[in-house]
Design a protein around this nucleic acid. Sequence first.
DNA 1: ACCTCTTTCCGTACGGCGTACGGACATTAA
DNA 2: TTAATGTCCGTACGCCGTACGGAAAGAGGT
Lengths: 247, 247
Amino acid sequence: MGTVALLWRHEHPLPPRPGRRPTITLDAVVAAGIHEADEQGLHDFSLRRVAQRLGVGVMTLYGHVENRSQLVELMVDQCRLDMEWAPLTGPWAARLEQVADENLALLARHPWLAHVETERAVLGPGTLTKYERELGAVDPLPLDDVGKDQALALVLDFVRSSARALEAARAERTEETPEQWWAREGAELAALQVEERFPLAARVGQATGEATNAAADAAAAHVFGLAVLLDGLAARAGVSRERSAPA
Amino acid sequence: MGTVALLWRHEHPLPPRPGRRPTITLDAVVAAGIHEADEQGLHDFSLRRVAQRLGVGVMTLYGHVENRSQLVELMVDQCRLDMEWAPLTGPWAARLEQVADENLALLARHPWLAHVETERAVLGPGTLTKYERELGAVDPLPLDDVGKDQALALVLDFVRSSARALEAARAERTEETPEQWWAREGAELAALQVEERFPLAARVGQATGEATNAAADAAAAHVFGLAVLLDGLAARAGVSRERSAPA
DNA sequence: ACCTCTTTCCGTACGGCGTACGGACATTAA
DNA sequence: TTAATGTCCGTACGCCGTACGGAAAGAGGT
């Protein structure tokens, strides 16, 4: 079955057919895949593990899904379908902030989403619903349709980067502290007179490294970047950040 | 050998030692790796292929490099070391534009760089030189050191997203035209009355899809996004985009 | 010249991956 | 009961990264 047909499988539930009855549903495969990716990350995500989690053989999955990457696409759309939304309210900037927050929360819940490579659009119900909703945040801006799409993509790409930085900061704490890393590799670096040869880098690197909490830094960078983006959109669109959106 | 020692290997060339003479150098391994990744992409990049390109056995590589990911880190730093730089001139915004252009060119030459996952800083000579230079673009901004780092990271992350979009648009043309895709999957989508259920998405999606050239769209999005970022930085830093930088 | 020590090269092997093939099996329609 | 149909999944192939250990090659001492 084509990917589109599988994405929209709930639109046309197929009538019972002759032959052996399936022991697992595609929904169960997708759900197991999401759990597996949440726990193991996309790098260690494998069909064998998903099958094991479901208690079936690996090749059983191929009766429900064409291949690994199609399963990932289905997982992506499902995650978007499962988002919980409060209605967008307030001026456009507040709406865009809300959209950014929702996406950051989504990527915190499913960090692997920020690492999915298949940029080819996944035209499923979750993705379309999400896109429709988020266009509502940029719709008040006096931009043409292409510009609205670009403005939204700008914010979403930024959130993606933020999420990756936050995840990296989180992982850094669990697997190796900066002190351990420095004890291992830093001594050799110090012998290279970095301060003299790269004065700006040394100064700024020290400033960013001084804050004890890497995760807090990444969060601050997110707040800063989002403010810059909203200011920039306001300036470029020639509109105030506070102007409330039309109904 | 630790990664830092290998990154800075040209600082301390080691004296000749007894024993069999190496048939290949680490520089050759890194260069072969870069060529391989340029041609095959990071997904199909494998140590076996690199070894084949060099005419040696796979395990020979392990005499020069600890593992695959370390080789990728060395490749990343080498690419940054090989960048060609014209001096940064003009006001800060022009400098940042120049930095963005350089990075976009780098990622066009080596598309796999935009897909390297190891976000942990690669503290090699290429990375440090690049960081030092690029901080020179944001240095005139009235931000503290952490703010300068964040502003630079904001621009670089944006360029990374742009590069990925441009690469995807380029790949789309070589492997499958939108018409072919639509013929295969679009018919089913059309049957779902998307226009009525997702009016904004349908309208904007059609607008963005109408421009015949996907690559041109991605390029336009890059120009738009960079302008928004620079406007935003100017507004947030409370400074004009045209103010020239101090010497 | 020969032996020994050091270092590099790399064949073999292991466990894991995605997935093609085809037989075993369960279920329904005839 | 039989035939048809769809599902489950064991086996196998060719990839991958990489651990191990022996073969090969050069340098220094005798």
